[in-house]
Computed example of a mutant assay.
Amino acid sequence: MFIIAGLGNPTREYEKTRHNAGFEAIDVLADKLGIRVTDKKHRAYCGMGMIGMEKVILSKPQTFMNLSGESIGAMADFYKVDPKQIIVICDDINLPEGQLRIRTKGSAGGHNGLKDIINHLGTQEFLRIRVGVGEKPKEMDLADYVLGRFPKEQEALMENAYKEAAEAAIMMVTDGADMAMNHFNRKK
């Protein structure tokens, strides 16, 4: 079994913001797989389904970004899922808009949602799909930037990135993380 969790902040106030890239990718993945992510469990909206022969749980933690580990850790404990079978999709300000970066482990890289997940899982060894949202302007506060929305001219680029993140998650489950890294970790 795999847990595929998209990070973001709940409530309409944060819809379509840079920080909600994970939620957006989960919505695309759920639509593609025909999974309804509406069950309220483990402080998240969840839905179960299959990717190939593997059972998957799609999750959108409702704990707010900085406490994402509370939800994902509880889910991993309940379903007895090894951290190496958890895929986290999140935003990344260190990547250009729309670019993906897949990793099998690593530090939080300054991302508070990932930091909390590492803390709750007790390991850095879980899979990640980082979706580039672009570098913040120097004069702008980080919170204001990640909680801001994309300009109109970048919306199509980001919609494509969410589709690619969904495809990457499927490939990670069916063909392994190495295959997904070889395919998606390319410069744009």
Score class of each variant (00 low, 15 high):
residue 27 D to F: 05
residue 184 F to N: 14
residue 128 R to T: 11
residue 38 T to M: 01
residue 114 L to I: 15
residue 147 L to I: 02
residue 113 G to K: 06
residue 9 N to C: 02
residue 86 I to L: 03
residue 161 A to S: 14
residue 168 A to L: 03
residue 97 E to M: 10
residue 151 P to R: 06
residue 39 D to L: 05
residue 77 D to M: 13
residue 102 I to V: 07
residue 131 V to Y: 07
residue 161 A to E: 09
residue 144 D to I: 10
residue 174 T to Q: 02
residue 8 G to A: 14
residue 93 I to F: 03
residue 57 I to N: 00
residue 140 M to T: 12
residue 117 I to V: 01
residue 185 N to K: 01
residue 42 H to C: 10
residue 141 D to K: 15
residue 134 G to I: 11
residue 97 E to W: 05
residue 122 G to M: 09
residue 73 G to D: 12
residue 68 S to T: 04
residue 110 G to E: 12
residue 117 I to P: 00
residue 55 K to W: 02
residue 21 A to R: 05
residue 37 V to N: 04
residue 85 Q to A: 08
residue 138 K to W: 05
residue 32 K to M: 11
residue 45 Y to L: 15
residue 169 A to H: 05
residue 16 K to P: 11
residue 50 M to F: 14
residue 140 M to H: 09
residue 172 M to E: 03
residue 85 Q to C: 14
residue 3 I to H: 00
residue 162 Y to K: 13
residue 24 E to C: 14
residue 90 C to P: 08
residue 101 R to F: 01
residue 12 R to T: 04
residue 47 G to V: 12
residue 135 E to T: 12
residue 56 V to C: 02
residue 56 V to S: 01
residue 89 I to P: 14
residue 106 G to P: 05
residue 147 L to H: 00
residue 43 R to S: 15
residue 66 N to K: 01
residue 30 A to E: 05
residue 120 H to G: 09
residue 137 P to W: 07
residue 139 E to A: 15
residue 160 N to K: 13
residue 169 A to K: 02
residue 41 K to T: 06
residue 117 I to D: 00
residue 120 H to K: 13
residue 72 I to P: 06
residue 39 D to W: 07
residue 40 K to Q: 15
residue 67 L to P: 04
residue 166 A to T: 10
residue 62 Q to T: 14
residue 129 I to T: 02
residue 60 K to M: 14
residue 63 T to F: 00
residue 100 L to V: 12
residue 146 V to C: 00
residue 122 G to Q: 01
residue 27 D to P: 08
residue 132 G to T: 07
residue 82 D to K: 03
residue 147 L to K: 01
residue 172 M to F: 10
residue 71 S to W: 04
residue 44 A to P: 13
residue 20 N to Q: 13
residue 170 I to D: 08
residue 179 M to K: 07
residue 145 Y to A: 02
residue 117 I to H: 01
residue 30 A to L: 01
residue 131 V to C: 03
residue 142 L to G: 00
residue 91 D to L: 14
residue 54 E to L: 05
residue 107 S to R: 00
residue 123 T to F: 12
residue 28 V to F: 07
residue 14 Y to F: 15
residue 179 M to L: 06
residue 136 K to P: 14
residue 14 Y to L: 11
residue 125 E to P: 02
residue 13 E to Y: 06
residue 98 G to P: 11
residue 48 M to Q: 14
residue 71 S to G: 12
residue 181 M to G: 04
residue 180 A to Y: 03
residue 144 D to A: 09
residue 25 A to R: 00
residue 78 F to T: 11
residue 92 D to E: 05
residue 38 T to H: 03
residue 86 I to M: 09
residue 2 F to Q: 13
residue 65 M to K: 13
residue 59 S to M: 07
residue 19 H to M: 06
residue 185 N to Y: 10
residue 156 A to Y: 10
residue 136 K to S: 09
residue 95 L to A: 05
residue 185 N to M: 03
residue 183 H to T: 14
residue 93 I to W: 01
residue 84 K to L: 09
residue 70 E to S: 10
residue 135 E to H: 07
residue 74 A to D: 14
residue 93 I to T: 12
residue 56 V to D: 06
residue 110 G to A: 02
residue 160 N to M: 15
residue 129 I to N: 00
residue 46 C to Q: 12
residue 74 A to W: 11
residue 161 A to T: 13
residue 132 G to F: 09
residue 2 F to K: 06
residue 157 L to S: 04
residue 158 M to D: 01
residue 100 L to D: 06
residue 121 L to E: 09
residue 76 A to K: 03
residue 117 I to Y: 00
residue 19 H to V: 14
residue 98 G to T: 03
